[in-house]
Computed example of a mutant assay.
Amino acid sequence: MTNTDLSPTPSTTPSAPAPPAAHPETYDASTRTALEHIDRHAVRVVADHRPERTRTGYAQDWKCWTRFCTESGVPLLALTPGTLTAYVEWLWTQPGWKAGTHLAPSTIDRRLSGTVVSAREEHGVKPEPGVARLARARLSQLVKQMEKDGEQRGRGPAAPLLVDHLTAISAACPENLMGIRDRALVLMHFAVAAREHELAATRVRDYTATPAGIQADLRVSKIRPRTVPVPYGSRPSICPVRAWTAWKEAAGLDSDPDSPAWRRLHSRWHTVMSGGLQPESVGDVITRAGVRAGIDIRFTGHSPRRGLATSSRLKGHDQIAIARQGGWAPHSKVLAGYLEVVDQWEDNALIGVL
């Protein structure tokens, strides 16, 4: 019996060359239709998975654009550098958040972005690259003129809610269900540097007790979900871990871990209701807490978030650590602006000179 070599024999026949790759401009009609369908599906999937708050904002932006088109006679899907520039000038004249005011530049910029995104993703428009560049240049001109004239628009940046404010707010909270809830909400809001909607969306199970404190799982976020470690505070009166535990026990939240963490209270009896607080209601709690404490600053739902960034910087923490706690991008321009307010005094070129 002879041994037989069973290893594959190399083919001596040269393989056929691969067909040349077709360029997109040579695709036939059926291929283009199939690719357009794939693109529309991808856009739809991404849009559908955006946070509800973002989708609502884009819908409002498109509604505003629709009103502009109706009043000016611009075709609804005619997004061009010229029409968007006219849109900015129209927005500049629109009333603001209360009587006698006008829209803030940041609101106009957001309306512009939301309109372009909605046109592209909801209505199949394919704006040219940089279609809003001219409109933003016009907005910049209007802002410079506004500053030159001394005009103020919008509410301005939120006042930071600092540690001394937390102490006063905590002391002023009454020892009833409302006071216990408000103390816990303000302290947790500060500790995780939350956005209002992030806090409103949390459930009881999203606050996990650990030997070192609490892991707060912020599952719903405008930017990205994050888990935030909240250690025990050195001062029991403003410790977010102790305050959360007190609220959970007083409200009997352990019975349903899937229920909202921050619950509404009955307007008359102040008993715990099944529904959770809306994002706007979270901001209202912050505002009322400052008023109750007699603080001569109007805090908003953004104040604890800015306050954490400011207070953390004052203790020497770097931007990356602060960004991680609050869910900012590592090199966020907004966060850098908050920190610059602190750094202008802590890292001043005149220190040690005069």
Rank of each mutant, 00 (worst) to 15 (best):
T2H: 14
T9D: 09
P10A: 13
S11M: 01
A16Y: 01
P19T: 07
P20K: 09
D28E: 15
A29Y: 00
S30C: 03
I38H: 08
H41R: 13
V43Y: 01
D48C: 03
D48S: 13
T56I: 11
G57F: 04
A59I: 04
W62V: 02
E71K: 04
V74P: 02
L76S: 13
L79T: 02
L79H: 02
G82M: 04
A86D: 11
T93P: 01
Q94I: 08
P95T: 13
P95K: 14
G96E: 03
W97S: 12
W97I: 02
L103M: 14
T107V: 09
R110D: 10
R111L: 12
L112F: 09
A119P: 10
E122T: 10
V125T: 14
P127V: 05
E128C: 00
A132I: 05
R133K: 09
R133N: 04
L134Y: 12
R136A: 11
R138D: 07
S140V: 07
S140I: 07
Q141N: 13
Q141C: 02
L142E: 12
K144M: 14
K148H: 12
D149N: 10
G150N: 10
Q152L: 15
Q152R: 15
R155N: 14
A159N: 12
A159E: 15
A159L: 11
L161S: 06
L162V: 14
V163H: 02
H165I: 05
A168K: 12
A171R: 14
A171N: 12
P174K: 08
E175Q: 14
R183H: 02
L185Y: 07
V186E: 04
V186Y: 03
L187E: 13
H189N: 15
F190V: 04
A191K: 03
A191V: 08
E196H: 04
E198Q: 06
A200N: 01
A201F: 05
T202A: 11
R205H: 12
R205Q: 14
D206A: 03
Y207W: 07
A209P: 01
P211R: 00
P211L: 00
I214N: 04
R219M: 03
V220G: 00
V220W: 00
S221V: 01
S221P: 01
R224L: 09
V228R: 10
V230E: 06
G233E: 06
S237D: 15
R242M: 08
R242L: 15
A243S: 05
W247M: 09
K248D: 03
K248Q: 11
E249H: 10
D254G: 05
S255V: 12
A261E: 10
R264K: 14
R264D: 05
L265F: 07
H270L: 07
H270Y: 09
V272K: 03
L277Y: 13
Q278T: 11
E280N: 05
E280M: 01
E280Q: 05
E280C: 00
V285I: 14
T287W: 07
I297L: 12
I297F: 02
R298A: 15
F299N: 05
F299G: 06
F299K: 02
S303P: 13
P304M: 08
R305P: 05
G307A: 13
A309R: 08
S311Y: 03
R313T: 06
L314Y: 04
H317W: 10
H317A: 08
Q319R: 07
I322Q: 06
R324Q: 09
Q325A: 10
Q325C: 11
G326R: 06
W328S: 06
P330W: 11
K333W: 07
K333G: 06
A336C: 10
L339G: 09
E340Y: 01
V342D: 11
W345F: 08
